[in-house]
Amino acid sequence: MAIGRGPFAFGTDIWDPSHRFETSWLLSPWALFFCRALFSLYIFTTLVFILAWYCITGATRCTASQNQFSYFTSLTYWGLGFYFLAAAIHTFTYARSGTALLDRFPRPLQALHSAFYTTIIVYPFVVTIVFWGRLYSGHWFTVEFEGWSNISQHAMNSVFALFEIVVARTNPPPAIHMLWLIVVLALYLSLAYITDATKGFYPYDFLDPAKQHAFVAAYVFGIAVGCLILFGVAWGLVWLRRYITETKLGLDGKFAHARAQLSDPDIEMAKHTELLPRESMPRQSMQQGRPV
């Protein structure tokens, strides 16, 4: 499945012919749906509890909750929650009918889902590395709420990202997504300075020119370069997972029953589109009538 060569091109080939976004080499579609739905529920429960906690206990009451939306950590965690919610819905519709809701979307929305996937396998690692490497003070563990919230947002976020890298059948993301990763980071940088102009504080002290002076540019450039490096790492891990599970172990994937009903022309199209013969020609079980 190709998204297109240019930054605004969506491609004209068949979209995700072997349902990579809704299937796993390890879990059945129903099990994958359950995991994604559970992750989404945990993430949203965490976010709502944190907002409520700050409203109830914070010195500035709900102002502290409102300020959460200025932090990249919080925004990316919301992104994780919405991704797993959307992915769970698409996986559910595929497991139930053999056709994912995503398959019926216009191509631009399908391409956006692909880009959304790329953000959730890259940004959580940026958040985790920056927090533990630059922002961690060493005292959060003495307060139960701070310990739990930091583990949830700065450690489990990367666990969720690893799940999508290792367990799903997705292809390595297209290189053009690197551009959009940097664009989103630039937009967040704008938000940080808007926050200072409207609320009088910087979400992160390394963005404050009054404190860091010329080092602000070094921090911004370093995080951008680090993001691109992490994109390369994530790309390599996805490629390695696909190579080991499909090429070496022959684990083509666990499909819904309708997967076995693909006509020969469709299978051949999938074969030539994704360049992976194994996945496109699942072995049939004569007793069950489905891939094994």
Rank of each mutant, 00 (worst) to 15 (best):
Y219A: 01
L207I: 03
W132R: 04
V184G: 06
G147Q: 09
K211R: 14
N157T: 08
I182P: 04
L179M: 12
D208T: 04
V127K: 00
T195Y: 02
S152D: 11
W148N: 11
W132C: 04
V167S: 00
G147V: 03
R169Q: 07
H139Y: 11
Y136V: 05
V159T: 10
L207S: 03
A186F: 05
V225W: 00
L179T: 14
M156P: 08
K199R: 15
F215T: 09
A210Y: 10
M156F: 14
A192I: 10
Y202N: 02
G222E: 06
V166F: 10
F131R: 05
L187W: 09
A155Y: 13
A186D: 06
L189T: 15
P173V: 09
Y219R: 03
E164A: 03
K199M: 15
S158E: 06
L207V: 01
I176G: 10
V225E: 03
T170I: 06
L162T: 07
S158H: 03
G222C: 10
Y219W: 07
K211C: 06
S152C: 13
A224P: 00
H177T: 08
R169P: 04
N150W: 05
T128P: 04
A210L: 15
K211A: 10
R134A: 13
A186H: 04
D196V: 12
S137L: 05
V183I: 11
H154L: 07
F131A: 07
A197E: 06
V127S: 01
F141K: 08
N171L: 15
A175N: 14
F206Q: 02
A197N: 02
H154V: 06
N150E: 07
V183C: 06
T198A: 11
P174V: 05
E144R: 15
R134Q: 10
N157M: 03
V159S: 09
F215H: 14
F206E: 04
F160G: 01
A168E: 11
G222M: 08
P203V: 01
L179C: 11
I194S: 09
E146Q: 14
L135K: 06
T142W: 13
N171K: 14
A175Q: 14
Y136K: 06
A210S: 15
L189M: 13
A192C: 13
L207E: 08
G133L: 03
L181Q: 00
E164Q: 07
N150A: 05
F215S: 13
F145Y: 12
G138F: 04
W132K: 01
L189D: 13
N157Y: 02
L162D: 03
V220F: 07
A224N: 00
G222H: 08
F215R: 14
Y193K: 02
V216F: 00
L162E: 03
D208E: 11
V184Q: 02
Q153S: 09
F201M: 01
I223P: 00
K199D: 15
Y188N: 09
A175L: 15
F221S: 14
F160A: 08
V159D: 07
A155V: 14
R169G: 05
D196A: 13
S158K: 03
F201I: 07
E144Q: 15
I129P: 09
P203Q: 02
A192Y: 13
K199F: 12
S152K: 03
Y204V: 08
F215W: 12
I165P: 03
T128H: 07
N157I: 08
L162V: 07
